[in-house]
């Protein structure tokens, strides 16, 4: 797919999200959450390129969300909190990354899971500070110094999430095409070969890992400022599983996948919950099974195949 088609597609997608949020007000919230998660999933996609599955990336999402929750009582400014929280998550990603990039496959996945579960326990243990599972309610934040109405704040967050998604989407696309991105794929096929060329597999993975933590941090910050309530459940292992779920649902082949997957995931969940309040989980599970068994390229892959067929017909 050519670059201009992709730009066009991205813009059409953004316009669709905005239109949907305008036509159906309650979906504006759902769309913002979906994009926030999409940002984190973009990081999962990056690691998937290296053949590594992190089952603990909710750690960075939750870390940034709590950073925003605590920071908001000091500087209640969205445009300060967001970058700070994201940088904090990236820094944490660097520290953790230095340790986990030495491991591959199941050990990589499980260490990530263990660390996110430790963070989950810490959030519960330091009850006096975090209020445990009750969570922290965020005070209202300003946007570029302006105090916005709830309605305007909702729109601001959606637009912010959209801009971040477009920006990071473009960045990751360029990154994957760059030597660093190509080297990631090298880790997946044969890491030893990479090292024969004088490239350190660990360093390549570390760069991607920190970048993924940064994006998860952005997602977490947006999530916190949208739901305006954070709880330790954000860091539970099922939340990490959800991110991987979305990555596969959307398709790992393109930077569109995470966002397509996140929107589809959130909509499915909302509609499943509305139709059968006590079996929504089963519906999500069945959807995932169908996608894996019949469209392993995810929704994006499915869409592409359809397009290709139409073109050839």
């Amino acid at each position: 797919m050519s670059r201009s088609t992709e730009i066009l597609l991205a813009l059409i997608g953004a316009a669709l999200v905005l239109a949907l949020a305008w036509a159906v007000p309650w979906l504006r919230f759902v769309m913002t959450i979906a994009l926030a998660k999409g940002l984190a999933v973009l990081g999962i996609l990056l690691l998937l390129r290296a053949g590594q599955v992190s089952f603990g990336h909710a750690l960075y999402l939750a870390f940034a969300a709590y950073a925003v929750a605590f920071g908001a009582s000091v500087v209640p400014e969205t445009l300060v909190l967001l970058p700070l929280a994201a940088l904090g998550a990236a820094l944490l990603g660097l520290v953790v990354g230095l340790f986990v990039v030495r491991y591959r496959e199941i050990f990589f996945g499980m260490l990530n899971l263990a660390l996110s579960m430790v963070f989950y326990s810490v959030l519960e243990k330091f009850y006096a500070i975090t209020h445990g599972t009750d969570g922290i309610r965020l005070p209202p934040t300003t946007f570029a110094g302006q105090t916005l109405s709830n309605e305007a704040q909702g729109w601001a967050m959606l637009v912010l999430a959209l801009l971040l998604s477009l920006g990071f989407g473009a960045l990751i696309r360029a990154y994957l095409a760059s030597p660093m991105g190509q080297a990631l794929a090298g880790i997946k096929t044969r890491e030893t070969r990479l090292e024969f060329m004088g490239i350190s597999g660990r360093r390549v993975l570390l760069a991607a890992y920190v970048l993924s933590a940064l994006m998860a941090g952005c997602g977490g910050a947006v999530l916190a400022m949208t739901t305006r309530h954070v709880t330790p459940a954000l860091a539970y292992w099922t939340a990490s599983g959800e991110l991987v779920f979305i990555a596969i649902l959307g398709g790992a082949g393109s930077v569109f996948g995470p966002f397509l997957g996140a929107v589809a995931y959130e909509l499915t969940r909302v509609y499943a919950a509305a139709l059968v309040a006590d079996a929504w989980q089963m519906i999500l599970g069945l959807v995932l099974l169908l996608v894996i068994l019949f469209a392993p390229g995810g929704l994006w892959g499915m869409g592409r195949a359809l397009l290709a067929r139409r073109r050839s017909a």
Binding site: L48, G51, V53, E105, V244, I248, A252, G285, L288, L293
Partner: peptide
């Protein structure tokens, strides 16, 4: 891919 196999069990 291993991740697909993993997710089948998640589903």
């Amino acid at each position: 891919e291993p991740v697909l196999q993993l997710l089948v069990t998640f589903a």
